[in-house]
Nucleic acid binder design. Sequence first.
DNA 1: GCCGATTCGATGACATGTCAACCAAGGCGT
DNA 2: ACGCCTTGGTTGACATGTCATCGAATCGGC
Lengths: 166, 166
Amino acid sequence: MSGVEATRWLDERQDRAWRGYRRMRRLLDLELARELTQDAGLSEPDYDVLSDLSETPQGRLRLSELADRMLWSRSRLSHHLTRMQQRGLVTREECPDDARGAIVVLTPAGRNAIEAAAPGHVTAVRQHFLDLLTPAEVEALGAFTHRVVDHLAQSRAPRPRRGLEA
Amino acid sequence: MSGVEATRWLDERQDRAWRGYRRMRRLLDLELARELTQDAGLSEPDYDVLSDLSETPQGRLRLSELADRMLWSRSRLSHHLTRMQQRGLVTREECPDDARGAIVVLTPAGRNAIEAAAPGHVTAVRQHFLDLLTPAEVEALGAFTHRVVDHLAQSRAPRPRRGLEA
DNA sequence: GCCGATTCGATGACATGTCAACCAAGGCGT
DNA sequence: ACGCCTTGGTTGACATGTCATCGAATCGGC
């Protein structure tokens, strides 16, 4: 690591892309969250939890498995589940295989909530985002986001030792 | 949600793009935040505040002006500035034109912090994101993000004041 | 089997963000 | 000048996320 090399700043095109990305991120988040809470009484994290759960055949997942899929810390998930449990959206069950484990289970109310919320949410995602892109842009978005994800996963995952949680 | 129309779900390409977008978002955030705090002792919000301030000629901005640029609520900015002020990164001054107003001023320490942090941060943004995209993809990203931002800004801005719209 | 190291999940303390209420000051019609 | 409404910013209560730590259970080498 020689420390003196001149920083390569962003050129005009990159700067435009980076600023646009962050601004879109923020505005899109605000709008999607606003519509979700208003129409369905769910926050985005709520929606994501329910969505991931409902995609499994039984509506049940090991807590750690769910945390990994969502890229959440176990701690965050545990706290959030406690709140969702108090609202009756999910419950916890003991894990038969592993007495340490816990299983998150979608309640009927939780299933109702996600099924009621999903159509509006998908519509909003289209309306405010995907439908504004050309098919080629959607294709490109899918391509480069996955490329970036793979790259980031590689610099994180191959360390069985420490450094998964930062 | 109007009547009974069938929801248009995402097709395979859109689903891939949407999932990729959200996953990239999350991983990129984690990594950039991790490097920022480790190398420069700043959070992303810290960096953004300092960055916006340092882009003004005097390193000073009206609080409401800064909040608008960052798409933050005044409340959030006020809280965050209080914390940054305690760390000596910014100060507040009274506004001469408008006795209600407050001006945020970058301190020398704050200027130091952003100048020390910027090269590493920009390098990280390149390394984990922009440099993984082709020039055409960067161009497309700039294009569609700004399109989406404009669209969202339009559905937000028309805040009916006094309900007297023509 | 035993013991140390690791994993799972929960928890408490703390940092951060949101929301509504508030005060002080400006804008404006009369 | 007088109200009345709006605006700028702060504040406190509360929701959410992070971090360090803990106890219990599992794993693995011996």
